[in-house]
Design a protein around this nucleic acid. Structure first.
Lengths: 250, 250
DNA sequence: AAGTGGTCTAGACCACTAG
DNA sequence: TAGTGGTCTAGACCACTTT
């Protein structure tokens, strides 16, 4: 019945070999959505593995959404979640390097401002308290890709080095400028049309579609320690979600 | 040094208790980014657990990005990836239910078409082959949220029940209409401005910002078995990415 | 050589589900 | 009651890194 065996001399560990075997049986239709898999004990016997090893393999497949386990009932093949998408945005420099582009950041402005109503609201400050603001233009292969505008609580006597603002991510800038470290983030993304001032920086017509990506940073005590946003060009920046096969992993 | 103990009478399993303890030590700054954690053997001794149980706990923290383990060197606290975002879009009905909204789908059109150049390209068909097309208007609490337009290879003599198109996700529609099941997906998201025809359906002004979400579905042999897209209203639909504390899990 | 994480084993007890 | 998955244990060997 088995057909496939675990190769004990392979560099690929047994738990991973079994995961590949089972994945193939699922993708090829031998196990169909809703079917139950053999029990963990049966798989252990069939492939001459300990139950813990079988479980490690099943955990991998479960993480990938191919199967679901239910205590007392068994382990079942899931309907693949193909109408679901997961989009990941890395820190800008990593994101662009990943895409094979040459990233660059140009510092457009650094200022200490009295917080406007909007900013003091976002940063949970009293009106007119002072905040540190900076603006960067993010490029890839010399083409403007995004504008970044960020605001943080201003700490007297802690100078910001312009040099740092060329390379550091927002949370790193805060880490160095403040004693309260950000430990949690919240980001909100929505489509927008670009306003005139930003259109000039991005070198696109006013009214072009863009992605507006808002960022809140929180300290361990839930204080907001930073707020701001990115504006990404819609014609140069899209997000991709893919379900990858197990083969290519590691 | 320890301070915290594992409560063996708790319903919370030991591996999870230890994960909470270690997470708190990381978030509070007792362990700082770059610091090494005690070795797995030391943690096992300190908390009176077996090494496998300690490893299960560390895996949880590693999945969440709080720590990284290196063979031969040790386990280290990571700088939290706060300038990174992960956005998840569920299948429409689930997504809206999750947001506490009442989802609904209205079938606008179902047709068998000769594939245009664009469609036959996307579906890897010869020109003029026939494709099945449908269009749905997706609502939440009676407000239009999105338009969905989908195309799939047409299979003669396999009727599509209009009823199904009210509830089923695209990949399910294909599963029932075709023998070749989709097992893999690819989605691409970008901002756009809405065209007049779509603006009418969505009840927004032409030129309003929208999210354009393209979907490709593949069979096990890499054939494209479905293609299409969603157009989401930008004023009603945004995506949120949050780093959650361990406490709230399960 | 000593210490680290990665993997594996052969048991065990438990909570839960089903017949 | 028998079978399932969830958790835990106390070992073991390995590849790798550091000293």
């Amino acid at each position: 019945m088995a057909g496939d065996r675990i190769n004990r001399n392979s560099f690929v560990p047994p738990y991973f070999q079994l995961a590949q075997i089972l994945e193939q049986k699922i993708l090829s239709g031998e196990f169909k959505p809703g079917d139950s898999l053999p029990s963990e004990n049966d798989l252990a016997k069939e492939y001459n593995l300990s139950r813990m090893t079988v479980r490690k393999c099943l955990n991998i497949l479960a993480e990938r959404g191919l199967i679901s386990a239910y205590r007392g009932r068994g382990t079942f093949v899931s309907r693949p979640a193909l109408d679901r998408a997961v989009f990941t945005i890395e820190e800008y420099h990593k994101e662009m390097s990943r895409r094979g582009l040459n990233p660059e950041a140009r510092l457009i402005a650094v200022k200490v401002l009295k917080a406007s109503a909007e900013i003091s609201g976002k940063l949970e400050l009293k009106a007119d308290e002072r905040v540190l603001y900076f603006c960067r233009l993010l490029l890839a292969d010399n083409v403007p890709m995004a504008i970044e505008r960020k605001y943080m609580r201003f700490k007297k006597g802690s100078p910001i080095l312009e040099n740092e603002l060329q390379y550091k991510a927002f949370s790193e800038v805060i880490s160095m400028h403040s004693e309260v470290l950000p430990v949690r983030s919240r980001m909100v993304m929505r489509p927008a049309v670009v306003e005139e001032e930003d259109a000039l920086l991005l070198q696109v017509p006013a009214g072009s579609p863009v992605l507006y990506l808002e960022q809140y940073l929180y300290a361990n005590d839930e204080t907001v320690v930073g707020w701001g946003f990115f504006i990404f060009r819609g014609d140069r920046f899209s997000l991709v979600s893919e379900v990858r096969p197990l083969k290519g992993v590691e």
